[in-house]
Every structure is written in structure tokens, then in C-alpha cells.
């Protein structure tokens, strides 16, 4: 057991997966010699050689396109898109090709490929280094979409994704790489070294894709969150003293509807959080699923707290980010008796 940052946990997952399976190859922009701009692949090229971890041209459609070919051959490519915001040139390859290969060939060809991409804001990245495009993937049949919120899950989910027979998108909240950021940008950063979810098993393990986790048990309102918003929700619950049950979805597709349903039926209230823009965001899907499954148990309308429907701003980052104040207000609002 070691105390690791999320970056170290992801690096460790790559390392162990490459060690146990020769088919795992890791590549992307700045991923090889340098070890990635966020250092998630540090040391892999030195350990496994240039044919298993290498630098790639700045060409996202080529990154994913070649990965599909490698996966079809029988390798297990793990490709890093440097920022989720750079994914768009590869969108055709992801949507029309990777996601559908198994179905369109009736299993003749498959695409066991992992696409990692740092996501979300909070680092003054402006509109081209802050986006959360998860809904653009959850809308696509054939993809799995996961979002870790801590080092333990980041390692387990990456290992599970590499073993998975289908393409898995991993959105890594970059603001969580070095600590469990809770939205209080004006306070010192708490490092993972002091957090229980920063305790990472040294051995290889997987975290099941499709299973959510309860981060705080509560009786009054269910909060559905993933990535950075899990930590914002925990802080908001503490600050408002609302007895919230906070569910860390971890996997958006497949979704752990069973856990969500059980929780909402217990609490009778639901608040949905994400950093991405609101309209047609994944929160709309969550909200629809909850009302379909739990309508007669609901005592208040479902509320979404999300980023605004604007491009992610630079100077106004903290006016955009759905921080603990906005989340806290939503918790109080669903608890109002009237």
C-alpha cells in the first residue's frame, strides 16, 4: 500500500498492465520519452522500450485511427489525448469506427482500446483546456465512459479498461491529479498523500466498470456526481449540514442505475452535478432516468447544478465552475418544506 497522487496511480496502472500483458502499447503526444505533459506515462518508454511506449504526431484522428487498427490486429492500445478539448478531430474515428466495429462486423473484428483524456477545468485553461465532453461519448452506442474521482479508482478503472474487450473512454479530471479539489480555489490544496482514497494497493487490481460508489451515506437527498464534483458535493454537504447521500458514479456507461434507484427511493430527493454545460448534458440523462425509475418517491423536483451554457471562460473560471456555494444552495433548496 502506498500513498499516491492520481498521476502516480495512473502511471502505476500503465506499468503493471504493460508488465503482465505484452499486447499493451501506450502512445500519444509527448507520451514517450518525456512521459506525458501530466507525467502519467513517465518512465514507461525507458522500461518497456520504444515500440511499446512512444511519441506520436500531433494528429488525434491518426492517434485513434491507428489505435483501431492495432486493436483489430490484437494489441491493446492505450492512447492519450493530451486534453479532452483536442479530441474533436478524432471524433469520427471514435464514433463511426471504434464504437461500432464489433456490431457492424458481428464480432468478426473488435476494438479493445483505451482512450484516456484529461478533462475538466479549474486550472485556468480557458475554453481549450477545460472542457468536459462526456455527453458526446455517452450518446454513442458501443462506448464505455468512466470518470475516476481518486487515485484508487483511477488505477483500478484503467486496469479494468485495458482488460475490457470494448473501447473505453477515460475522462481524467485534471484538477484532481494532485489532490481532492473541492471547489474552494482560494484555499490551500489538500494533497492525496493525506487522503484515504490516495492509499493505493501496490498490486495489480481492477475496479469494475459499471459500479458506482457511495462516498457519503445520508438520508435526505441523493447527490449524483462524478469526477471533481464528488469532492465539491462532499464539502457542500458538510458546509450546509444537509444529510446528503453522495454517489460517485465512476462509470457513466454502463450506469449503476440499481444503486441510484435504491438511494433516491430512500431519500426522495435528487440533485445532479456536473462541470459540463447544462443543456443536453449527462445530467439531463440522469434526471430523466431518475424520474422514470423513482417518480412516485420524489418529494421535490430534481435539480441540476452544472457549468453554464457558455464556453469555459478564462478569467471568470470561478464564476463558471459549479462550486460548493451553488451546490450547497441546491441542497438547501430541495430540502425546503413548502
Amino acid at each position: 500500500m502506498a500513498q499516491l497522487t492520481m498521476i502516480e496511480a495512473i502511471q502505476n496502472a500503465h506499468d503493471l498492465a504493460m508488465e503482465r500483458d505484452d499486447r499493451v502499447v501506450v502512445y500519444g503526444e509527448d507520451v514517450g520519452y518525456f512521459g506525458g505533459v501530466f507525467r502519467c506515462t513517465a518512465g514507461l518508454q525507458q522500461k518497456y522500450g520504444t515500440s511499446r511506449c512512444f511519441d506520436a504526431p500531433i494528429n488525434e484522428s491518426g492517434l485513434i485511427g491507428t489505435g483501431i487498427g492495432m486493436a483489430a490486429y490484437g494489441l491493446r492500445p492505450v492512447v492519450e489525448i493530451q486534453f479532452a478539448d483536442y479530441m474533436y478531430p478524432a471524433y469520427d474515428q471514435i464514433v463511426s469506427e471504434a464504437a461500432r466495429l464489433r456490431h457492424r462486423s458481428a464480432g468478426d473484428f473488435t476494438c479493445p482500446m483505451v482512450i484516456r483524456m484529461p478533462t475538466g477545468g479549474g486550472i485556468y485553461g480557458g475554453q481549450t483546456h477545460s472542457q468536459s465532453p462526456e455527453a458526446l461519448f455517452t450518446h454513442v452506442a458501443g462506448l464505455k465512459v468512466v470518470v475516476p474521482s481518486n487515485p484508487q479508482d483511477a488505477k483500478g478503472l484503467l486496469c479494468a479498461a485495458i482488460e475490457d474487450p470494448d473501447p473505453v473512454i477515460i475522462l481524467e479530471p485534471k484538477r484532481l491529479y494532485n489532490g481532492p479539489f473541492d471547489g474552494h480555489h482560494d484555499r490551500p490544496v489538500v494533497p492525496w498523500k493525506k487522503h484515504e482514497l490516495g492509499e493505493v494497493d501496490d498490486a495489480y487490481y481492477t475496479t469494475e466498470i459499471g459500479k458506482a460508489a457511495i462516498r457519503r451515506e445520508g438520508q435526505d437527498v441523493t447527490v449524483l456526481a462524478y469526477g471533481t464534483m464528488v469532492h465539491v458535493a462532499l464539502t457542500a454537504a458538510e458546509e450546509t449540514e444537509v444529510d446528503a447521500e453522495i454517489i460517485d458514479l465512476r462509470s457513466l456507461i454502463p450506469l449503476d442505475l440499481e444503486m441510484i434507484e435504491a438511494s433516491v427511493k430512500k431519500t426522495g430527493r435528487c440533485v445532479v452535478l456536473h462541470e459540463a454545460t447544462k443543456t443536453s448534458g449527462f445530467g439531463a440523462e440522469l434526471s430523466a432516468q431518475v424520474q422514470e425509475a423513482c417518480f412516485y418517491h420524489l418529494e421535490a423536483p430534481i435539480i441540476r447544478v452544472t457549468g453554464w451554457d457558455t464556453p469555459y471562460p478564462h478569467a471568470q473560471e470561478w464564476d463558471y465552475f459549479p462550486g460548493p456555494a451553488r451546490v450547497g444552495a441546491a441542497l438547501k433548496s430541495v430540502m425546503k418544506e413548502d
Binding site: 502499447v25 484522428s61 485511427g65 487498427g69 492495432m70 490486429y73 457492424r104
Partner: peptide
């Protein structure tokens, strides 16, 4: 697959680069 014929896509050009990846995989292996 058994006849060396990859599943066809109607999105043009996408498979040109996939073939390169398949070749890279052969070299890697």
C-alpha cells in the same frame, strides 16, 4: 477477417489510417 478483409465502413478515408495502425501493430509484435 479470415480472408484478410477488414469490415467496411461507409465513412470514407477512415480506414486508410487504421490500416497503418494494423501495420504498426505487426511491426510492434
Amino acid at each position: 477477417k479470415d480472408h484478410g478483409f477488414f469490415s467496411l465502413s461507409g465513412n470514407l478515408g477512415t480506414q486508410f489510417v487504421q490500416a497503418v495502425g494494423w501495420g504498426m501493430a505487426s511491426a510492434i509484435s
